[in-house]
Every structure is written in C-alpha cells, then in structure tokens.
Design a protein around this nucleic acid. Sequence first.
DNA 1: AGCGTTTAGCGAAACGTTTTTCTAAAGATT
DNA 2: AATCTTTAGAAAAACGTTTCGCTAAACGCT
Lengths: 335, 335
Amino acid sequence: MKRHVTIKDVARVAGVAPSTVSYVLNGSRAVTAETTKAVLEAVDQLKYRPNPTAQGLVSGAYRTIGVVSAQIYSQYRGRVVAGIHSALRGTGYHPIVSGIEDFAEPDEVLETVMGRGVDALIFHDHFFPPERIAELHRQMPVICVAREIDGMPDRSVLVDEVNGGYLATQHLIELGHTRIAHFVADHHFQGAAQRLAGYRKALEEAGIPFDPALVFQGDNLGDSGLRLAYELLESGVPVTAIFAANDYMAYGAILALHRRGLRVPEHISVVGYDDEHTSGFYVPPLTTIRQEPREMGRTAAEAVLKLLRGEVFRTVVTPTRLIVRESTAAPGHAG
Amino acid sequence: MKRHVTIKDVARVAGVAPSTVSYVLNGSRAVTAETTKAVLEAVDQLKYRPNPTAQGLVSGAYRTIGVVSAQIYSQYRGRVVAGIHSALRGTGYHPIVSGIEDFAEPDEVLETVMGRGVDALIFHDHFFPPERIAELHRQMPVICVAREIDGMPDRSVLVDEVNGGYLATQHLIELGHTRIAHFVADHHFQGAAQRLAGYRKALEEAGIPFDPALVFQGDNLGDSGLRLAYELLESGVPVTAIFAANDYMAYGAILALHRRGLRVPEHISVVGYDDEHTSGFYVPPLTTIRQEPREMGRTAAEAVLKLLRGEVFRTVVTPTRLIVRESTAAPGHAG
DNA sequence: AGCGTTTAGCGAAACGTTTTTCTAAAGATT
DNA sequence: AATCTTTAGAAAAACGTTTCGCTAAACGCT
C-alpha cells in the first residue's frame, strides 16, 4: 500500500546504478555534473528519502544517544534534556530518553534505552549504580552530568556545586544572618554534599561556627521542604534564614512559614537552588542559585559526539551564580 | 575492536543454522526441545542480543513513535510525555520527542522527528500547521493530544476543556463572586476558546451577564499573567476574582496582586488551570483545574499502537476536575 | 604515439536479521 | 508395505543501503 521508494527506483528513473545514486547523495566519490543532475532530478521527482534503518545496518551505528535522566518533572532537568536535543539537532544523531519515572528499576530503564541500540549514553541521575555505568563505559562512550564515577576520568559535565552553596550562604551572611539553616538535597545526589560543603565554607570564612542542629536532610520534594521547616520551627533553635538545596524544598519551606504566620523575607529569609522556571513568579520571588542546565546538556551532547569521533574530552565544570530576588533581606527587618 | 556477536556466531556455537536460532528466539516455528536448549545455551554463553537495526530492516518498521510537543518546560506537558513513555515501555516501540524549543520551525521539528524514520506520530502542540498534520495523516497513523484537526476524525485524545472552564467559574460563583475576570490561554491553543466557553456557560447559568471588559488575552507565560493583572487593576473595572487559563498565568497574577498590596484570597480569589506540580506549594496553595496528563499520554500512545495494529480507535475525551486549595474564598472576606 | 594513471560508472558483496523455499526423515493412512 | 503428510532443520532470498572491486574510457606524460 504505502510502497516505500528505494534507491533502486531512483537509479532506474535516473538511468544509473544504485551505487551511483549513493555516491551522488553522499558525495563519497566524484560524479559528473550531468549524472549528478539526473540523479537529483529523480530524487526530487520521486521524493526519495534514504531509509535510515538500512543506512544504520551497513554503517554499524544506530545514530542514537541514550539519555538516562531521573525526575524529568523538574524543569531544571527538562532543560538539560532540551540542551541535549538542541546540540544533537542536525548531527544525524537522536536522543532516546528514559528514566522519566522516578526511581524506575535500573534494569528496566536500561532495557528501554538500550533495547533499540544506542551508540553512546548520557547519564543525568544519581541512583543508577556506578558499577553498572562503569561497565557500560567499557563498551561505548558514556558521559555523566553532575556526577563523577570512579574509574571514569574526563567523562563528566560538572557544576560548581560547592561554589553554589557558598554563594547562597555568603549572600545571607552579607545581609547579616548568622543563624542559617540548610536543607540538604537528596542524599543519593553527589551535589548534595558539595552544596553542604559550600555552606560550611562560607560559614567558616565568616567565622560563624557550624551548628549541626541547623542542618536537615531533605529529599528534593516540596513536601520535604514543608516538613523540614515545621521540624526546624518546632525544634526551637533560633534561625533567621534557610538555604534550601533546591527550589522545590524552598517553596515547601516558605509555605510552612506562611502557615505559621511567618513572612518571607521579613521574618525569615529563604534561598533556593536551581532557579526553576516558576521561581521568578513565586510570592515572594525566590532568591536562588542559577546553573546553566541547557548549557550543561549541550556540553554533554557535544562531549559524546567528540568521543564518538575518537577525539578527547576533558571534564568541564560549568559555573553557578546567585540570582537575588525578594525572598532574602536583612534579619530583624520585621522588627 | 568491539566485534558484535551475531546470529551466525550463535548458530555456529549451537551447531545449527542461523534460521533455526531465529525460530527459537521468536517462537515462530516449532523446534525440538533439544535444539532449543542448545541454542539458548549458546545465546547465554555469547550474550547474544539481536541487532534491532537489522530486525527493523527486514520488518520494514522503525519501531519508533515520533512525538512533537510544544513547551516541554511545562510540567503538565512533561507528564503527557511521561505517560507516552510509560505506555510504550515493553512494547518494543520507543518515542522520539522533539519540539522542546518553543516555537521551533515546523520543518525543522519535523526533520528532527522524521529524520530517523518513525512509524507513527503524536502531536501535542498547537502551532504546527493543520494541513501539514493532515498530510502526514495520509502516510501513517497520527494522533493529536488536546487538539482536533479537520478531516481527521477519531484521531484525538481530548480533554473536557469546556467543563474545566465551567468548573472553575462555577466554583467562584458558588463562593459568591459575580465580577470574575478571565485570562485567556494562548490563542494558538484550541482549548483556549473552550475554556472561555465554559466560563461563559457558568456565568450564563448563574444569570451573570458576560462582560468583555473582564476578558484578557494571555500567552500562557507567568509574565503575561503579571502584565494582565496590572492591566486589569489599572482599568479600574471592579473585580473580585480571576480565573486564569493556566497555572503560570495565575502565578504571575498573584504576584502582581501581591505587589499592589492585594492579598489572595482575602481581596481577590484566583483559580488556575493544569495543576502544575508546584501549585500545591504556592503561597497560597492554588485552587486549579486538574486534568490527567499522564493518562492522556498513555491513551495517546495506546491509540497509536492500536492504529499500528490496524484496529480502530475512537476519539476519547478525558475528564477534568476542580482541585480546591487556598487561593479562593468568598468575596469581601478581607472586610 | 605508446604507455601508465586517473576518472566515472557499474555490479556485487556486505551489514544482521526474518521469512520463504527446499529437503530429508519420521509419522500417519489405507 | 507403499504412499501421503507432517515435522524440523538447512539453505537461500530478501530488506535498502554503502562500499569494494572491476572495467573501460579519458587523460597525462615522455
């Protein structure tokens, strides 16, 4: 019914051999202007498009990059994927994304991604077992985003998470805060410890003693920010600011404060992390740390293409910066 | 270097013909228990995995579903894609998603999706030219999400948008509001008119005259909600409630009200639409209309699979419901 | 002018499967 | 017991490309 037009049809119409059509289309060998013209006309006339599957079979490549990403619902992570898409556009490679479900079984995710055959992999998650990733690394190019794996040097696109934590905390210190709580990101996530390290570094530099009673372990969800803020308030430890390791936890925290009649930033300042798309329209607009997720995605995709071409790639660390909005102010401001 | 193990290798080790291996693996013909065992052992030993490209070549299918989605940054849309992924898992089909960029060129998007070959398409956008979609529809199964196209009966997964607009408005009317503004969704989007129709229907039923001065055309972004709310306030028309046709515009509106010293819901009630993931943690938590994006994605994917198998699919309309949170209250509540 | 070399085209092999066709042995039928 | 049918396996064709090897004509060199 929908008979596909093949290279043979083109060859027949143009009056040449199939191989000549291939040479014209790929420019892989010299062809007379005359023949070229005839072939191109036949291609146009028949609306011929090479069958990618057949091309893939002979080239031995799938022209596909597998992308494993946790928690796609985060706009931040969505933008990393968008960056990958955009860098791959026009290269002939296409991404196949999986791990949309939170914490799907590693094997299942891998099956989804690999089932169709991939030439390389990009991991942007923090739960996939490192040994499994290292094993895959031995078979094909693998790049990790915001994650480093033992035995895989120069295979990561990192963010300066320590600096992110440092900037957030330092901002609060500069405003005059000394009692700053920190809601730690999901412990599966490597950046969690680094953001915490940045937080400690800023405190130390300012001569403020680190108080473990101000540090709470979260899991990145809005609900956890809400719960931790209640916990913090009930613990009775004095506090004038909260640095949440992601925006969702910051949202939850602000809601909890609101419910307890505390206003942000008048009573308590809050800093988030990731600059989700909605954070500029939150009430109050959220001060947060911006990374460049699109840029990270692009870089990861370009790294993979480099490796595929046999070139070398060296781990890059992308910058973080502070976005000051209206959720932070000097303490005692409500007075 | 990374010599792939082929069906011939398996055949050689098992001491049978390649075709026999294929029969064993696909169960497409009877094979002795003895032979089966030998083949399976060889497969295990060599860790053989069939090459999907070669399978695709002979079957003539790509085992790929193209997905064109606008504005993936919306969590709502992301969840539709997640639903598609989840319905496709285990079927051997894989989605290839494009249109991540807002308003990318149709041709470019199509090239990205089709470049690799797809067996069917799912559209979840509102800017792709309908004639182009209808044309593709003649070549392969095509399903549209939240959109209907002339000449393509029974090719849509719809939402009861009219009811959504109705529920939101009726909720406000029940609380006692009569001056209700509506921020219309992006005009490219078919649902925009339907939500507006639901708004008018609720007003009419309650005997409240429709006032065009209360209707503002938005573009779905937070910024537009902000701008329209300022416009509304400056216009001086009396108003006690806003029904925004998506949550982002509601966020922007609430921020604008906040900036003008108006509290939600004490001074003005606000209803959103879509129930984005963050809306439950907004201050105040947002009353909104929930659709079932995952379910819609699943349904669309299942529809496509049905069509691929030659079965019939009839357009389905998925329900909408009202989620009451804390951004709505009776008017005059602030006293 | 005669010889080697480049050029441009053709035909066929190859990629790794599935599927169709063929064959020989085993089993069923009268 | 002789023929017919079923069975289980092998061999070969097919899917649509790219690429290798070959050939004949055109070209360049002395």
